[in-house]
Design a protein around this nucleic acid. Structure first.
Lengths: 110, 110
DNA sequence: TTGACGTATTCCCATATGGGTATATGTTGG
DNA sequence: CCAACATATACCCATATGGGAATACGTCAA
């Protein structure tokens, strides 16, 4: 087997930095593909491909507007990630995190 | 170029479900490779490989104990993910999320 | 109708994945 | 020193990636 498809779930989709950037921009509001191309400095086909992935996992939604397509964020799709990560919050919010880090240094000195 | 290496950062490392499971188990405390093999029902080499990835991105730490190696969680490594996702919290915590979902249904009926 | 525009799709390719299986490395007890 | 044990590595393979470039598709303006 190979690595899971990027369209498998939000975790895989969001592993790609460009896709995170796209979501960051969309967080500010609806954008057309062209807008994203301009704001992110990426090639148009790549933007379209990334949007396709994001759409397949339900992280963005589209709306037609003449010849343009306006994409917008569907933040709810990130909740699974948030929920999973949240379980580990205590590991960095209290002092244990600091202690762990220190022990880290002591045990793996290279 | 191909997909970014799984060892690139926490986002990529955690995209693999098995690795998330490993972290879940480690959240309960230190475990030897054998323990993980038993608890997760995976093959030993696979567990070792996944642990290697997790270690490279700093999500786990090791400690030698005779012939065994005890791995433990380094939750702090997940903070970047938490921080990034947290920016989108409002998108599902308030009513906008619900509204968005409704609009969703109306616009993409198929 | 036609051409320009906005976006999506198709190819090509180097790359690394994750599983399986076999084996290397390292440690301990006797 | 050796055998059993615990873990790590090395291979092999099918698979999909993400970028680049070219092109198809759909829509608008004149």
């Amino acid at each position: 087997m190979a690595r899971a498809a990027t369209t498998t779930d939000a975790f895989n989709a969001v592993a790609e930095p460009r896709r995170r950037e796209i979501l960051d921009v969309l967080a500010a509001g609806e954008r057309s593909v062209g807008d994203l191309v301009a704001e992110l400095g990426l090639a148009q086909p790549q933007v379209s491909k990334h949007l396709k992935v994001l759409h397949e996992v339900g992280l963005v939604a589209v709306r037609e507007d003449g010849r343009r397509r306006l994409y917008r964020l569907n933040g709810g799709g990130l909740k699974p990630i948030h929920d999973w990560v949240a379980r580990f919050e205590r590991h960095w919010e209290d002092r244990f995190g600091v202690l762990d880090a220190v022990l880290e240094q002591m045990e793996e000195p290279e």
